[in-house]
Design a protein around this nucleic acid. Structure first.
Length: 429
RNA sequence: GGAGAGAUGGCAGAGUGGUCGAAUGCGGCGGUCUUGAAAACCGUUAUCCCGCUUGCGGGAUCGGGGGUUCGAAUCCCUCUCUCUCCGCCA
């Protein structure tokens, strides 16, 4: 969330953020609420001060004098109670509004309404040509046809037992996904990341702290009986790991890698990406999470680091991709700057989002109450960032489709072979 | 699932209706002593909010919320979490 003082001092910046991100947020209303809250606070404080003084006096009194004073205070107490109830109500409204205030974007963020207006920054790698052993072009199949023929993906039975957007990975398909994840995690650990196998089921505070609630309730699976939520990304658990803590500056940056299943309801996406493994309810992901100093330059360096790590994985896998600057309208309420990495997916005849790299500045840290103490003893909210490192099965789409051979077999990317017992190809049994 | 115990400052731990934001010890910080360090001794040491502003005044906070009371760390209700025992269990 934003610093409420920032909103009051910079109403135009927040209005601009709301406009650019296409978020409804009434800044003037918030400011009125903030004024009201402060007035009530002052009134309640002085009523309580009176009450405190009187109580101190009463204990020294006896007899009739005491009786009178107590009776007086009984009346005063009622005033105080009314005023603090009003204050409490105002504070709730204020808090609710504060949680929904949009964070301004970076000057590097292009303005736009939705993902169609994201700006391509650069591409990497050659788009594939599909040639058979004799060098003749062949018509490539999509990952569903390939996967079903190889009996490594079974969507039909997935849907049978779990509903739409469900699937089984099977045999070499299951092993391929694990290989990709294991390869990626090894890579991050070598780079100094601390790996996490986090809780998949979290409480409301974690969803609130990372900024998914309020607003994203429809997208999260919930277990109402236990008031728990299934995470849509390990960012939720891992960024919340230090929730409420005050770290030492010397411990920063924290460089974490969360490996988890992710669950998404995909509400409101009926009819969108209905085929195959692109948009599904459950997938595995390794997410990079960084907690660093409250310094925009440091955040920018970390953003670059996270982005490059993701790109390296795609390069290692030999997948062509592009990096886009996500436009304001496609950004979350709390994000300051965001890049998506999109990998070439032949069946879509386009690049498809596989990674999302976000800088939050102190937006999440404020919600999480995640702070650190500098060498002078001063306490600051930290900065947080995150980026996908790999998400599967979505990444199987380009892998299967790009590495397919004319006979329907799949050549396993070289870097993954050690994770698949040295196997070079996935073939029909 | 059943029975019980508990949650107090960075940590340990006292406090069962008023003078308690909270004893004491440890730790931290500053100082004295010392060539330096240790020890000893002295001092100091929570966070948040509001208002005038290098300081001060007021308010809130003893797991969260609610209640009783002129007054709650202390009494009552409730939730969460932790621990012990029994049961069940991957």
């Amino acid at each position: 969330m934003l610093d409420p003082k920032f909103i009051v001092a910079n109403p135009d910046a927040v209005k601009e953020a709301a406009r650019k991100k296409h978020i409804n947020f009434d800044v003037d209303d918030f400011i009125r609420l903030d004024e009201k809250r402060r007035e009530l606070q002052t009134r309640v404080d002085s009523l309580r001060a009176e009450k405190n003084t009187a109580s101190e006096r009463i204990q020294k009194l006896t007899g009739a004098e005491k009786e009178t004073a107590v009776a007086e205070m009984r009346a005063k107490g009622a005033d105080e109670k009314t005023a603090s109830e009003e204050l409490k109500q105002t504070e709730e409204l204020w808090q609710e509004a504060l949680l929904r205030a949009p964070a301004p974007t970076s000057p590097n963020t292009p303005e736009g309404k939705d993902d169609t207006e994201n700006v391509e920054l650069y591409t990497h790698g050659e788009l594939p040509k599909f040639l058979d052993a004799d060098g003749k072009p062949f018509e490539p199949k999509d990952h569903i046809a390939l996967g079903e023929a190889l009996d490594i993906i079974d969507i039909e039975r997935g849907v049978k037992i779990a509903g739409s957007r469900s699937y089984f990975l099977k045999g070499q398909g299951a092993l391929l996904e694990l290989a990709i994840l294991h390869f990626t995690l090894d890579k991050l650990v070598k780079k100094g990341f601390t790996p996490f196998l986090p809780p998949l089921l979290v409480n409301r505070e974690a969803m609130l702290g990372t900024g998914y609630f309020p607003g994203g309730e429809e997208q999260a699976y919930s277990l109402p009986l236990d008031e728990k939520y299934l995470i849509g990304t390990s960012e939720v658990s891992v960024a919340s790991y230090h929730m409420g803590e005050t770290l030492a500056e010397s411990e920063l940056p924290k460089i974490y890698a969360g490996y988890s299943y992710c669950f998404r309801r995909e509400a409101g996406t009926y009819g969108k990406d209905t085929r195959g493994l692109y948009r599904i309810h459950q997938f595995q992901k390794i997410e990079q999470v960084i907690i660093c100093k409250n310094d925009p330059a440091e955040s920018a360096r970390m953003h670059e680091f996270l982005l490059k790590n993701a790109e390296e994985v795609l390069q290692d896998l030999g997948l062509p991709y592009r990096v886009v600057a996500v436009c304001s309208g496609d950004m979350g309420q709390g994000q300051y700057y965001k890049n998506d990495v999109e990998t070439w997916m032949p069946s879509r005849k386009s690049y498809g989002e596989t990674h999302s790299c976000s800088t939050f500045l102190d937006y999440q840290a404020r919600r999480l109450n995640l702070r650190y103490k500098d060498s002078a003893g001063k306490v600051h909210f930290a900065h947080t960032l995150n980026n996908t490192c790999i998400a599967s099965p979505r990444i199987l789409i380009p892998i299967l489709e790009i590495y397919q051979n004319s006979d329907g077999s799949i050549t396993i990317p070289e870097v993954l072979r050690p994770y698949m017992g040295g196997r070079e190809r996935i073939t029909r049994r």
